[in-house]
């Protein structure tokens, strides 16, 4: 059995939006494909259901829903399906917490990614991935635009 570490990522972003809009952006393919590099998130978001990140016909990530409390908490397992050095590693765990900032129109999103094995390649891939996704998500929700190469 590979040895798990307590290495984890805790990334935070503050977005001028509502918990409802943020929840929709995290759980609906019509939104994810706009800020998540064209990836559709596919799930019925019932605990125990599968959760997939699909690009075109290809499944990039496969997981299982661990928790889905609308507008507050979403958690799923996360396994890279595309054949890479890291796809042989066991699934990791992603938790997304949504907290309205009292007295403001801002929502705090905290992403925690855990359950990495020792010397995980997946860990290295993920470290740069989330900041890019979170910046893109923030821009999408605050301006309706996607980060990219538009003028």
């Amino acid at each position: 059995m590979p040895k798990f570490t307590d290495q984890k990522f805790v990334y935070t972003t503050y977005i001028k939006t509502t918990p409802e809009k943020l929840w929709a952006a995290l759980t609906s393919a019509e939104f994810t494909r706009q800020y998540l590099f064209g990836i559709d998130v596919v799930s019925d978001w019932k605990v125990g259901s599968t959760m997939k990140f699909v690009k075109g016909n290809e499944t990039w990530v496969l997981g299982k829903v661990l928790a889905a409390n609308p507008y507050t908490l979403l958690s799923y397992t996360f396994h890279e399906e595309r054949t890479t050095e890291s796809s042989i590693e066991p699934p990791t765990k992603v938790t997304l917490e949504i907290e309205p900032e009292a007295g403001t129109e801002t929502v705090r999103l905290i992403v925690t990614h855990t359950d990495f094995i020792e010397n995980s390649k997946h860990y290295q891939n993920i470290s740069g991935g989330w900041p890019a996704v979170l910046s893109s998500l923030k821009t999408f929700l605050e301006t309706g635009r996607i980060l990219g190469f538009e003028s």
């Binding site: 990522f9 805790v10 990334y11 935070t12 989330w130 900041p131 890019a132 910046s135 923030k138 821009t139």
Partner: peptide
């Protein structure tokens, strides 16, 4: 305490 690189990424973008 964890490093949160998201604001630095915003500078980059």
């Amino acid at each position: 305490h964890y490093l949160n690189p998201v604001p630095i990424h915003a500078i980059e973008t």
